[in-house]
């Protein structure tokens, strides 16, 4: 496990929380939702989705419940918990300020130093 993967993992968690915050979704639905919002610009490893889901559930950010899918099949639906809501907010803020800082650094011109 190297750093790049760690970063990706962290982002994946955040994206999952965001996707679920828009309404209950099953695992496959989360995948589709992220792809749809990102206009297919983000490719998510399908295999890494589920460990991430289980980890988030274990941590109490999301909850799961068996329900029925659009085509009348049994599927496990994930929803955002109250704790997860807070977590998503915190992660979003964190991400935004981080992005600001990095944008600032990258946009620096020689005469500004």
């Amino acid at each position: 496990m190297d750093k790049q993967l760690d970063l990706l993992q962290g982002t994946l968690d955040m994206l999952i929380l965001k996707a679920v915050s828009l309404g209950p979704l099953h695992g496959y639905g989360i995948l589709l939702r992220i792809q749809q919002i990102s206009k297919d610009r983000l490719e998510i490893q399908q295999g890494s989705l589920y460990p991430a889901l289980y980890r988030l559930e274990h941590q109490g950010w999301i909850a799961s419940e068996w329900g029925e899918s659009e085509n009348k099949r049994k599927a496990k639906y994930y929803t955002l918990t109250a704790a997860g809501k807070g977590r998503l907010q915190a992660e979003t803020d964190n991400w935004n300020s981080m992005a600001d800082v990095i944008r600032g650094i990258l946009g620096t011109k020689p005469e500004e130093v």
Binding site: H26, G27, Y28, Q46, Y50, E57, H58, G60, S69, R73, K74, A75, K76
Partner: peptide, 27 residues
């Protein structure tokens, strides 16, 4: 969650199976 995992280890396994199967089939 850990206790549930311990107590219902077998149920958890079958849940996981069902969920992954659903994913594959939906895809």
């Amino acid at each position: 969650s850990w206790f549930r995992a311990m107590l219902w280890r077998s149920r958890m396994e079958s849940d996981m199976d069902a969920e992954l199967r659903f994913h594959l089939e939906a895809f």
